[in-house]
Amino acid sequence: MVVYKLFWDEFSSWYLEAIKPAYQKPIDSKTLAATEVFFDKLLKLLHPFMPFITEELWQLLEERKDGESIMISDMPVANGWNKEIEQHFEKLKEVVTHIRSIRKDKNIPNKDELKLYIRAEENKYDKSLDNLAVKLANLSELILTEDKVDDAISFMVGTSEYFIPLEGNIDVEEELKKLEEELKYQKGFLNSVSKKLSNEKFVNNAPQKVVDIERQKQADAEIRIKAIEEQINLLK
């Protein structure tokens, strides 16, 4: 259901997050009006699937006269869409998602602002969504750079490289200690799984499903260990 995804993922998770005023702050009239227009369209697109709730909300969206109903309103139409704008935003979503997961991994609170470096040439870079990136990822600034950034976590979106410097954001000592502990645990786990899998009796007699699960555990642990080791190297 296209419209299910449109409402839940695109409108609720991205659009409303993007335009939402700060907590208990007012909103400007233009943005609210545009949002209500979107809501109207979304309710209409949803109406055939969910006739009741859409009627209820459409009637609440603005004052309606007796005899008006969403079920006899006009379905929104489109003659095409701007692919460039759409794709540009998709890229922004990826960047924000990366930054959010870095925050989660590194325990960086959402309220702490981060700096984001983008390795790109000044004249080829489209700045139009920078303000949105700042808002959605809570950035202090967005800096274009031509070189790699040291002491930073990097990620790629499309062909662009992004860096978040670690300075001040995390306690290196503390992080290293945590990583070493995790590494030790994962190695121990891998050891026990590998032992099991080297036991011929187990491999030959256990149901194929069970053996497969163990093999998967082994592979997952190996990937995790590699990732942790890379992070430790980066921090050192």
């Binding site: 695109e10 659009y15 369209k41």
Partner: peptide
């Protein structure tokens, strides 16, 4: 930023329609 989001979502709705 709101302007940018609105511009995007307009296209997104059109694409979905």
């Amino acid at each position: 930023y709101a302007q940018a989001a609105i511009t995007w979502f307009e296209e997104k709705i059109n694409q979905s329609i």
